[in-house]
């Protein structure tokens, strides 16, 4: 049955209406979870607010387990679901740079949209920097074109690398996530005892 758009069940303008609605739901959830505040987000690195980790990991395990059930029930054709291709070296570098950007800027692109939406100027600054960064990358692209395409492993999955099934991967993620929720809850309690304020608006 699914995915609907690649199989041609939804076409034309409806695609964009749905994109708009999905985007709106995404923005609503990000903002209402507290991601419009960089101080909430940065809390994950300093132990006073683990909201990022909670939302992120919960969303991930729900989607993973859900996808596998959909697959089992035949509701979604997993061969048509886009698996992000892996380019090992550039992705390692990309993750490294983004990690730095994360701890310095305190936003990621999606959360900066919502910060802009409620009038945070630091959100606008981050988004402006983001545009600039993409522009700089594109302009300098010929310099590292070869590197950008290096380490191509194709649309490889975690299970294929570790030689286990997707179900084992999902189960492992669930266990790790729940353990992380518990540990971070303990850490947060300790750190918050020395702080007057840990949740920001």
């Amino acid at each position: 049955m699914g995915p609907l758009i690649p199989q041609g069940y939804i076409t034309g303008q409806w695609e964009f209406v749905i994109a708009l609605l999905i985007g709106a739901a995404f923005g609503f959830l990000l903002e209402s979870s507290g991601f419009s505040s960089s101080r909430n987000i940065a809390g994950v690195f300093y132990g006073y607010n683990f909201v990022v980790l909670r939302v992120f990991f919960t969303a991930m395990i729900v989607a993973m387990v859900g996808l596998l059930y959909f697959d089992y029930l035949g509701w979604i054709d997993m061969s048509m679901v886009f698996v992000l291709p892996t380019f090992l070296a550039p992705m390692l570098l990309g993750g490294f740079i983004m990690g730095l950007g994360f701890v310095i800027g305190g936003f990621c692109p999606g959360t900066s949209y919502t910060a802009c939406a409620i009038g945070k100027l630091d959100g606008f600054a981050f988004l402006g920097g983001f545009f600039l960064g993409v522009f700089l990358f594109s302009e300098a692209f010929p310099l590292f074109e070869k590197f950008y395409y290096s380490g191509d492993m194709g649309n490889i999955t975690i299970g294929e690398v570790l030689h286990v099934s997707d179900r084992v991967v999902a189960f492992a993620f669930v266990v790790i996530a729940i353990a992380a929720f518990y540990v971070t809850w303990l850490i947060e309690k300790k750190v918050r005892a020395n702080r007057t304020e840990s949740k920001f608006e």
Partner: peptide
Amino acid sequence: LSLLMILLAGGLLLLPDRTNYSQ
């Protein structure tokens, strides 16, 4: 909730492999 999530994920491990003939 944690227990529910572990059960759901554990259930996946016990399910037989889906055979996609109809697909």
